[in-house]
Design a protein around this nucleic acid. Sequence first.
DNA 1: TGTAAACTTAAAAAATCCTAAAAATTTAGC
DNA 2: GCTAAATTTTTAGGATTTTTTAAGTTTACA
Lengths: 220, 220
Amino acid sequence: MRILYVEDEKFLAEAVIHILKKAKIDVDWVADGEEGLELALKPNYDAIVLDIMLPKMSGLDILAAVRGRNIKTPIIMLSALSEVDDKIKGLDTGADDYLAKPFKTAELIARLHALSRRPPLNNAKILKYEGLEYDSANRMLNEAELTEKEAGIFEMLIKNPGAVVAKEQILARIWGNGIEYEDNYVEVYISYLRKKIKNIGSNVKIKTVRGLGYKLCLEN
Amino acid sequence: MRILYVEDEKFLAEAVIHILKKAKIDVDWVADGEEGLELALKPNYDAIVLDIMLPKMSGLDILAAVRGRNIKTPIIMLSALSEVDDKIKGLDTGADDYLAKPFKTAELIARLHALSRRPPLNNAKILKYEGLEYDSANRMLNEAELTEKEAGIFEMLIKNPGAVVAKEQILARIWGNGIEYEDNYVEVYISYLRKKIKNIGSNVKIKTVRGLGYKLCLEN
DNA sequence: TGTAAACTTAAAAAATCCTAAAAATTTAGC
DNA sequence: GCTAAATTTTTAGGATTTTTTAAGTTTACA
């Protein structure tokens, strides 16, 4: 699970991130509202945690902007205990949950898990495309086992069958924002995936769209 | 036996937990409804004891949510003597038993035992998988005797034959929430189980899915 | 045809897992 | 209660798998 965390209190943020990491939750952290909005608009996260008081742009504004664009990523709002009105405002504007500061990290983790489990409720779903069957719970693609990274990338592809998934998006989603990453990471894993798909004997191909990304399609 | 106890009266909760512990019943205690629901949805308990009056979310709501998801863990409702209507509502919604406050802890223990002996959780059942026969009542796997921890883990595996059981789930279920535990506990016991399965001469294997967990499958 | 982008691969590094064995704790029998 | 046995927890080093790095090769397209 990967989340975006917009929080300007550095000390708090670092502590929270440390604990979330232990709970196997990857966190991209930014400290101001504008940057937060920019990242929030990308479809790279399983959930977004927004502090309300932020420099440049408030958490409520981000929330409104995100929901305004019809993006449905689950959002949890954070705010100081007293800001009760904000809570109501936030839930009105489409926040999925609300946590008063100071909060227990365990509670945040619990709610993140709750949110991420909500829509599918069971990740035992099997995604299919032209004879390929991907079981995400077992990370099995037909008879082939996928590693964590392979699985993450393949899931992005098969969830948008036939559509191009941008290389940038894969990088952001699987490796996260902020640090310096190489396009080559993705290329390496696409190469691994192609090998495995070939071994299965499928006639599905991962097609490269130069300068953009990749998509699943049939051989021809 | 491990139960979940959702109760907001701290003093009462501590007293009850103390006595249940003596009766060899492990208790995970949470004080509010939302957290209670979160834990109740996990398949980690032999029974759930729900107070009705709770912060954030009532015991009845939890009950409804749990039953709504077709989870059949036995549930005992607790409530003040006067709330007779609640009793009816609770049993309607699928509670297995009802206890009026104040109750005698001995009575709670008796009812927990009664519930845990019931057909659905009747542990006289023998679970089978590809030549392996696991008798949970006697903790016997074919001719091998399993220790308590070994048995707990093996039961999780054989109840989901062929599907991955997350290491985290195993930790939560066998070692409980909250306490500090190590991934290595699970690894050690998986190692013990593998040895015993091998000694039986079975062709069943415990396969590890790196970064996720373990599953039963056939050798190949 | 020249060049940038993409591909492939090997091997180094890191993460994860396994196992034996010692230490601590619990249980059972006397 | 005391001792012995069984079980669980710790520890630690080694094995395996996955990820990252890096470099040489191929491909697509102006």
